[in-house]
Every structure is written in C-alpha cells, then in structure tokens.
C-alpha cells in the first residue's frame, strides 16, 4: 500500500517536471526580439504615453525598454507572457524617468486642505448632495467604450501630482514606500492624495456618466 503511494508520488513529480520543461522550451522559442517592435511596439508606446503624455519621451522609454529586455533576455523565466515581461521593464523605466524629473524640478505645493473635497459636505459634515443612484447594474458600463473614454477624461482632470500618485498606486500597483521615495512625499501625504484623487474621479464619473441615461 505504502509503496504504491510512493510510486504514485514519483509518477506525478515526473509528469510535472517534464511538463514544465516542455513549457520552457516553447517559451524560449517564442522569444524573438526581431518581432518585438511589430508585436509590442505600439502597445508599449501607448502604455508610456498614457503615463507621460510626451511623444519623444515615450519613444525613448520604449527604446530603453527594448534594449534592457535584450540585455536581460536570459532572465526571462517564462512565468509570464513576453508582453507582461516587457511591460514590467517599461514600468521600471517609467519610475526611473519620474524620479529624474522630480530631481530637476521642484515639487508643486501640496495643499494642506482640500477645499474641493470639503465642499462635498455641509457644516454638519453630511453630504451636501447625497450620492446619486447609479442604477442597479453599474458594472454594465465597464463593457461600454464610451464609459472608458469618460473615465480617461476624468483621470485627466485630476490635478497633476494627485493623478501621478493615483496612477502609480492604483494602475501600476507600485508599493507605497517606493512611490513615496520617487515623489518625495510622506506616506500620510500619499494616502491623502489617493483619497482625494478617488473622490474627484468618483464625482466626475457621477456627473459625466451616471447622471442621465446610463444610470437606468
């Protein structure tokens, strides 16, 4: 009985190892730097543009990403797709870029009080205008292209540093302490800014999307 279990164990192990080897071979074959520009170039460029918004910088970052990838091609483990791997490198390049920018220009003044957020509440700290009904199935909006266009417009309306913090944290999933280092802000300040950015995004979507027919 016991030996059967051992035999079963090794058989399973054998299959797993063999399966993994085959996978790695497949992935090694799939890595082809000469296809990178064609397959991922535009995607990486758009990604960089969405974070930086300057064509020349975005192009430069894509180039640096591809060069970096080329240099570290042996470290590609095949745990992710080629694109995910390239995006991860690009994200590091973006962080480096933002860090350098920060050194060059002085930080914009962080407002201690956010009068905009305060204006949402009355003197008794109740909602001035209560949150509107977003309909029974707001998630349907996520499938709507128009919604995303409004979403991006709203993201664009958030004040610069607030938006930068929000993007790094919520979109790029960077660790809080890393963002604080890059943007040279305190942890407390970081969370306050993310909070404010979320409120602005919320209000903007409320007014520009959920008000009217989309809420039905």
């Amino acid at each position: 009985m016991f030996s059967w279990q051992i035999l079963f164990f090794f058989t399973v192990c054998g299959f797993t190892v063999r399966g993994r080897r085959v996978d790695q071979q497949k992935l090694a074959l799939r890595i082809d730097p000469e296809q990178w520009v064609e397959e991922h170039g535009d995607f990486l460029f758009r990604f960089a543009m969405s974070r930086i918004g300057k064509v020349d910088v975005a192009e430069e970052l894509v180039q640096e990403t591809l060069l970096s990838a080329l240099r570290s091609i042996d470290t590609f483990q095949g745990h992710s797709t080629e694109r995910t791997w390239l995006v991860a490198i690009l994200k590091r390049k973006l962080i480096d870029y933002i860090r350098k920018q920060k050194k060059r220009c002085t930080l914009s003044q962080n407002e201690r009080n956010d009068s905009w957020a305060d204006s949402l509440f009355d003197e008794r700290e109740r909602w001035k205008s209560p949150p509107r009904n977003w309909g029974s199935r707001p998630e349907l909006s996520l499938e709507n292209e128009e919604f995303w266009s409004v979403f991006h417009t709203c993201l664009g309306k958030i004040p610069k540093q607030m938006a930068e913090t929000f993007r790094l944290r919520e979109l790029d999933d960077q660790p809080a302490n890393e963002i604080c280092k890059v943007l040279q802000i305190s942890q407390e300040n970081l969370w306050v800014m993310i909070h404010r950015a979320r409120l602005r995004l919320w209000k903007c979507l409320d007014i520009n999307w959920f008000e009217g027919e989309h809420a039905k």
């Binding site: 170039g41 995607f43 758009r46």
Partner: peptide, 17 residues
C-alpha cells in the same frame, strides 16, 4: 479592469511612427 486591459487606455489608436 483598466490595469488588466491597458489596450483600452487609449481610444485613439496612436502608435510608434
């Protein structure tokens, strides 16, 4: 969802020159 689908981030299909 936006993080998972960065393709949707840009409505205008811009790309490298």
């Amino acid at each position: 969802k936006l993080t998972r689908l960065p393709e949707q981030e840009s409505q205008t299909q811009i790309g490298l020159s």
